[in-house]
Design a protein around this nucleic acid. Structure first.
Lengths: 171, 171
DNA sequence: CCAAACTGGTTACATCTGTAACCATCGAAA
DNA sequence: TTTCGATGGTTACAGATGTAACCAGTTTGG
């Protein structure tokens, strides 16, 4: 099955397909929060993270939603400017600030949740039954595969097993 | 099955998961062509497209590798600057230029192909057997789902109209 | 008590990206 | 042929991003 090694078929090349599809989906979803709330993706993720967990530090936010700290910093600054969140200095460690959504921020979040869920539902429904199971299975598999550190070569073993990661998916 | 509509679990939210994984994979792969050839993603795609099809116009490139025309324009300009490709004006339509890799460009491409394939192979191997089939099945499903006219609104993004797109996928 | 070494977070700068406006050419209609 | 609306492609400008340098506050260890 392996074709010769002198031509690469971009259209079926995994990194390309994956990125392209993610980009498509992401863009389409972005329209929802962009049109409605005028948020950028980092801002949306920040809103989402705080809506979900209530209070977080910038660092935690970055870890939770896979954002570089500069993105977090800027997103937080913007949401603060809109008065959608407030910072509360930590008593013990004055480098840290605890971030929490304000009433307005929470309202924006609450308004988005159903839309996000509807979007996802609609997307999944468009994907045929078989594909749906395959999709989550595939994402699980890639996630597990990538959570292994070896950026190098060797892939032996792999054993992603243990790792606690946030995998809480019901199905 | 749907959880309440007041909280969204970002970590399992499809658009997020998809984007995050694609980003991870893409970044890792980008290191290959960036370290080795100093290319940006649009440049790599352009190189890849021309390597694969021999000669293309900027428009075709954009369609094949899902890039906005400004990206194509810039990538082409850069590859031309490096003398990795040349433009040949079209005889009949003087707005068009046919792009082709030079010896140097082709050499760069040829050097990358095995690395790209190795990368993909390694990635797939890290994904357990089951996940592997699921992955391609899932990508197929999403691709199919997205090519359907979005029930949502206008554009729907890519998928240029008439052109049967280069979908050569077996399934 | 003071000096590394570290950590949470912000900022400066250089790129990259998308939108929109633009140029040249083409096709069709008048 | 002239005109007007598409089309291939480039460019100007405003945002968004990543890297690296930078602060301020903390910890560790003399």
């Amino acid at each position: 099955m392996a074709s010769q090694d002198d031509v690469l078929e971009l259209e079926t090349f995994l990194p390309y397909r994956l990125y392209h599809l993610a980009d498509l989906v992401s863009r389409e979803f972005a329209r929802v929060y962009k049109d409605r709330l005028g948020l950028t993706r980092p801002e949306w993720r920040t809103l989402s993270g705080l809506g979900q967990y209530g209070t977080m530090t910038a660092k935690e936010l970055g870890e939770q939603s896979a954002m570089h700290k500069t993105k977090v910093s800027r997103a937080v600054a913007e949401l603060e400017r809109r008065r959608w969140l407030i910072r509360t200095p930590d008593e013990k460690d004055r480098r840290i600030e605890h971030l929490t959504l304000t009433k307005a921020g929470l309202a924006a979040y609450r308004g988005m949740v159903p839309l996000a869920k509807a979007f996802e539902r609609e997307l999944l429904s468009r994907i045929k039954q078989s594909g749906q199971g395959a999709l989550t299975a595939a994402l699980d598999a890639i996630e597990a595969a990538l959570s292994l550190t070896p950026s190098g070569a060797d892939s032996g073993g792999a054993a992603a097993g243990g790792d606690g990661r946030r995998r809480a998916r019901p199905d």
